[in-house]
Design a protein around this nucleic acid. Structure first.
Lengths: 170, 170
DNA sequence: ACGAGACATGTCTACGTTAGAAGGTGCGGC
DNA sequence: GCCGCACCTTCTAACGTAGACATGTCTCGT
């Protein structure tokens, strides 16, 4: 149930409509917590009903602009400081690794190579983003930069792992 | 829908009952693809109905032992070679990082420190497992070892990231 | 004046996951 | 002999996610 907190978090940067949030999700949070449009609108509705956000303005085309309330802010902070992050990791990429013995060594190496290449591609993409964001010094940039760095470091580790793993298979 | 393939993969190592598989999940696959008991039994039922596994023996207490069929093996291999792994990564740990500006710097540093400590703990746990498994040379050990190494490398990267990130906050 | 495309919200269905209760059977130890 | 525990399965309810579908409005360029 973290979509709720993702929405609250984004609303701390100012009021926004469902449509606005959707766009922000796509460019910033999608790598960390993807969300579809139907999820977003539904969550905004629930959030409003629970009093964690309020409709602060209505615009053309039925646009509703939501603002975070004091209660919402409190809930966000509570979640950040008192709720332990869920540590479940699910990876069908890694699941396949367990069963690599089922296919022949050449195919297994191919598989690992593809994972390495994928990581490399991701890295390039993230480096591009890093260079773009480099300049900003606001909260969003500072912490967005830290989150990005997480992706960068993990991507590197994954690439190195894939290269190493490929060599393990004879 | 990878639970299905996790089950098929485990059954390549020999026939097993739902109960057996549950135990194997807990000790080996749970870090990669957790599953609950109800999920497992339900999946076995669907798998049997689809002809990917068959009931090869019935034991006491209504025990049903499932074996993978040729069709099941084919499906597993198809999944491994032809289906691209899903790349969605969802992390509420990282989601919080985006909003670290909402709490005060001391708390933010605490948060990052806890993430580093958690990674360290995980690493120790995984190193213990590695030392235990070290000896085996069967497929399971070889590829299990490679999967474990993934965890090890990512854990290290995460720990280093957390330590670095903590220093970024003034 | 009009049409294309962006803006904007909402509903529905299906599926996979989680959590827990409920209910029965065989086995080993005392 | 019997008691407790491990074994083993089934079912239900709720939740979160994914994607399609439906619907309507405003704006801008021509």
């Amino acid at each position: 149930m973290s979509l709720r907190h993702a929405v609250l978090g984004l609303l701390t940067k100012g009021p926004a409509s469902g449509y606005d949030l959707l766009k922000v999700f796509d460019v910033s949070l999608s790598n960390v917590w993807p969300a579809t449009q139907s999820q977003l609108y539904a969550e905004l509705g629930r959030l409003a009903e629970a009093g964690l956000v309020s409709v602060s303005a209505e615009g053309p085309r039925g646009r509703k602009e939501y603002s975070i309330t004091g209660e919402g802010l409190a809930e966000l902070r509570h979640w950040m400081t008192d709720v332990e992050p869920a540590r479940v990791m699910r990876s069908d990429m890694l699941l396949r690794v367990f069963f690599l013995g089922q296919i022949d060594p050449g195919q297994a190496r191919d598989y690992l190579r593809r994972q390495g290449e994928f990581a490399t591609g991701q890295l390039e993409r993230m480096e591009g983003i890093r260079d773009l964001v480099e300049k900003g010094q606001d909260d969003l940039s500072v912490y967005g930069r830290i989150a990005l760095d997480y992706g960068l470091r993990l991507g590197q580790a994954q690439r190195e792992w894939a290269e190493w793993a490929e060599k393990q298979i004879r």
